[in-house]
């Protein structure tokens, strides 16, 4: 299976990217909460960037943990 043995799993790469994206989007959402950009945005009061960023961060963290190279939880 890709990811077993010496090869890094594609799921780890996906987890890493989603984790970083989640962090960036969450940070941008929190920044926007305190310093609103003022751009017109529908449903802006729901602060989607915060909860969607948090969701991506958690999802990415789970994939990284489970498919961490050489010794992840998923081996």
């Amino acid at each position: 299976m890709p990811g077993e043995g010496h090869r890094i799993s594609i799921w780890f790469f996906i987890g890493a990217l989603l984790g970083v994206y989640g962090l960036l989007i969450l940070a941008a959402g929190i920044w926007d909460l305190f310093y609103p950009s003022g751009l017109p945005q529908a449903m802006g009061h729901l602060h989607a960037a915060i909860w969607w960023g948090a969701f991506l961060l958690v999802l990415g963290a789970i994939y990284c943990w489970k498919f961490w190279p050489n010794g992840g939880r998923g081996r």
Binding site: I25, L26, G29, D32, L39, A48
Partner: peptide, 11 residues
Amino acid sequence: ARYCGPGLLGL
């Protein structure tokens, strides 16, 4: 553009 602010727009 209607729903995505900074960060989400990049995604």
